[in-house]
C-alpha cells in the first residue's frame, strides 16, 4: 500500500535501498514501554487500548529497550531517573528515535521549579518530536508518530540533498 503511494500509478519504483528500509521502518515503530508518570496512562495505556489502537499503525510496545526503535519519554524526569533514561537510550539499537511527551518531558512542566526535576528530557537524550500538553491526548501522540514517520522517510533524501549542496 505504501509503495503504491510512493510510485503513483506505476508499479515500478526506483528507490535507494536505504529509503526502502526507512519506509519499512516507519511502518513498524516499536516503542519501549517506559511510562514514568501521568503521561504514561494516556500515551501508553489508553493509546494501546481499543479506542485509539496504535497497533494498526504498526506502533507496538516492547518491554525491552533492545527490541525498541522509539522511546516515548512519558513523564517527569528527575535527577534520580535521568541516569536510567540515558542508560535505556544507550541500550536501544540504532536507528532510534525519541518522542518527548508532555510538558514535563519538554521543559519540566508543572514541576519545573522544583530543583530535583530535570528541565526537559532533551538535556539527557536527543529528542525528535515534542508533544505539548499536560497530558497530551492520545490523538496528539498519534499525530506525533505520523510526524515521526515523515521524518524517517525523508531522512535519506535530506542527507543526499545536503551532500549535493556540499559538492
Amino acid at each position: 500500500m505504501a509503495i503504491d503511494r510512493l510510485t503513483g500509478e506505476h508499479s515500478i519504483a526506483f528507490i535507494r535501498s536505504e529509503q526502502l528500509f526507512d519506509l519499512a521502518r516507519s511502518h513498524s515503530l516499536w516503542y519501549m514501554a517506559f511510562g514514568i508518570a501521568c503521561c504514561a496512562i494516556e500515551g501508553l495505556m489508553s493509546a494501546s487500548g481499543p479506542r485509539f489502537d496504535f497497533d494498526r499503525m504498526g506502533v507496538f510496545f516492547r518491554a525491552s529497550p533492545r527490541q525498541a526503535d522509539v522511546m516515548i519519554v512519558a513523564g517527569t524526569v528527575n535527577l534520580k531517573m535521568a541516569e536510567t533514561v540515558r542508560m535505556l537510550y544507550d541500550q536501544m539499537p540504532e536507528p532510534k528515535w525519541v518522542v518527548a511527551m508532555g510538558a514535563c518531558a519538554n521543559t519540566g512542566g508543572p514541576f519545573r521549579e522544583y530543583p530535583n526535576v530535570v528541565l526537559g528530557v532533551d538535556k539527557i537524550v536527543p529528542v525528535d518530536v515534542y508533544i505539548p500538553g499536560c497530558p497530551p491526548r492520545p490523538e496528539s501522540v498519534q499525530y506525533a508518530f505520523i510526524e515521526l514517520q515523515k521524518k524517517i522517510r525523508n531522512r535519506t533524501g535530506e542527507r543526499l540533498a545536503a551532500r549535493r549542496d556540499r559538492t
Binding site: 528527575n78 531517573m81 514541576f111
Partner: peptide, 9 residues
C-alpha cells in the same frame, strides 16, 4: 524515581 516536589511546590 518520580519525586517531583508536590509538597514543596
Amino acid at each position: 524515581y518520580l519525586h517531583r516536589g508536590i509538597e514543596k511546590l
